[in-house]
Each structure stands twice: as C-alpha cells, then as structure tokens.
Computed example of a mutant assay.
Amino acid sequence: MRFGCGHGADADDAGVVALRRACPVCMLVHETQRSRGELLGRVAPAQRRRLAAETRIGAEYDWACVRGHDRYRASVVEVLTGTGCAKCRANAASPGAAREAGMPFMKHGLRVGTSMTEQRLRVLLGERIRLHHRANAVRTARMFHGRQEVWPDILVAELRVAIEYDDPGRSGRAHRGVKEGSDVEKDEALREVGWEVIRIRGGGLPPLGPYSIPCRGITPAVADEVVRLLRAIRGDAAVDALLVRPVAAS
C-alpha cells in the first residue's frame, strides 16, 4: 500500500494499491501539531531509518524522554498522545500538576495557523467584549495529544470559556470522524478543569456539544450569539463586566 504522503510500499512494486490520503503516522503527526522530524530526533539512532518510513501508529520504538529521564519503549501513538516515560506519568499525576489544572497561560512559539475566518471572528468579538491577549493555552488535568494542555482558538479567560471555530475545509473531512472525536476529547478536558466551550460550526458541520452555533459564515449575528451564550453560561453580570463600552462623544 502506497500513501499520498509518499510512505508505504514502493510505487513500482507489483500489486501496490495507491491511496491519496496520508499514512496513519503522518495523519496523527499532523493532528497533534508535531512533525516526523521531531519523532526522528527522539527515537534511538539505530531505529531512525525504520521510523522515517513507518506507517503504523502501533509500531514500537525506543525513545528518549523530552525531559531528560530514562529511555523508554512505546508505540508511535503513545509517544504522540501519551504522557511520556514512567517518571513523566508520575509527575503528571502529582499534586502540583493538579493545582495548575485550569490555569490559562501564554504558550510562546505556538505553531497554530489562524485562518482569515478565525481572525474575523476575533475582530467581531473584540468589538463586543474585551479579549485576553496574554493567554493562548489552558493547563488540563488529563493528557491531550501528549501534552497536559490544550490550545483553543479564542480564550475568554475571565469567564473560563473557550471559543472554537470548526470548518470542514477544502477536503470536506476536517472536524469529522477521528478529528471530531478529538474535538470532543478536548472539550471534555476543558470541562474537567472548570472551563466551558462554545463551538461555532461552519460549512454544514452539525452541532457538537451543548453550546454550538451552526453557521454559513462569520457574521455580526454569530458574534452576538456568542455573547448570548456567554451570558447563558456565566451570567449577565460577569459578561457585562467585559463589554466594550462605546466612547462617549465629546
């Protein structure tokens, strides 16, 4: 089997089935905001050549811990979505980690692309409520794609509400299937630590979760609906404190 990412069987081999989609490893690497190069940098040197061509997320390798702990054995999917080595797992369950759960913070160097649609949403919301620009991530109690944190599109930190914009994209497959399951897990991780999530569902995506806004595009009416849901979630007084007040004419 030959995948669209170039991994898999040799294209010249007899009986090879060519698929247009990426292999399971490349799909998971993309989903978890990683790169295959990062994996190659962590795997045991003798196993790098095999990992470079790997397509199976269940294949096991020997890995170096990113925090400098002992080398450990794990599958590709465990490395990309798990806690890490045994010491890392113990640290994730420590009282100190529990105290930090739910805290918003600034994740410097965060590699998350922002679409023009998301930028428009942020502008429209910024005309209605004050948005916190010094936080782009939230500590969680559970591991999510190998990290004890999540990166929502927009944070209303004062209200502990995350706002996500979902669109199926050009392929029509984004935020469906496995990705939808990942979205649900992300929302659950936020709710576990006292946050709530508003999902704006574009491109014909069905509602997901108790606070969903299906739409065809980002309009002022969508932004108004977000504010209405914020009131339903946290109350009028809390939202009123964040409203952008018009400048009085002199």
Rank of each mutant, 00 (worst) to 15 (best):
A64N: 03
A14Y: 08
M103N: 05
D224C: 04
T83G: 14
G146P: 00
P95A: 15
R48I: 14
V222A: 07
F3A: 09
R142N: 12
V222P: 06
A22G: 02
T117M: 10
E118P: 00
L190K: 01
A44S: 08
V123Y: 14
A238C: 06
R231D: 08
A248V: 15
A249N: 12
T219M: 05
L190E: 01
P95L: 15
F105G: 01
L205D: 01
F144E: 08
K179V: 07
R122L: 13
V226T: 11
G169S: 04
D70K: 06
G109A: 06
A162I: 07
V29L: 12
E188G: 11
M143T: 10
D240A: 14
G15D: 02
R21K: 08
C215D: 09
E192A: 10
P214L: 00
A9D: 13
Y72P: 06
C23M: 08
A101G: 10
G181I: 06
Y211G: 00
E38Y: 10
E31V: 11
P95Y: 15
P152G: 03
Y72W: 15
L159H: 01
W195M: 06
V247D: 13
C26P: 00
V193H: 05
S182M: 13
D183N: 11
T81V: 08
L121C: 04
V239D: 06
E185N: 02
R234V: 07
G169F: 01
E54S: 09
D167L: 00
S115D: 08
Q119L: 14
R122H: 12
V16T: 15
G6K: 08
S115Y: 10
V227Y: 02
L242H: 10
P168D: 03
L155V: 01
L155F: 04
H132I: 11
E185K: 05
F144M: 12
E31K: 11
H7N: 13
A22C: 04
G58Y: 13
A44T: 02
S75G: 13
E225G: 03
D10R: 14
A241V: 10
T32S: 12
E60R: 15
S94D: 13
T32F: 10
C215S: 11
G109V: 05
V226E: 07
A97K: 08
G84R: 03
G82I: 04
A64G: 02
R49V: 15
I200T: 01
D236K: 13
L131N: 12
S250W: 04
T140P: 00
G181M: 08
G209T: 00
L190S: 00
L80V: 06
Q148E: 12
M106L: 14
V227D: 03
A52Q: 15
P168Q: 02
R130Y: 07
L205T: 03
R228D: 14
R128C: 07
C5P: 00
T83E: 15
D166L: 09
V184Q: 12
L242V: 08
G172A: 11
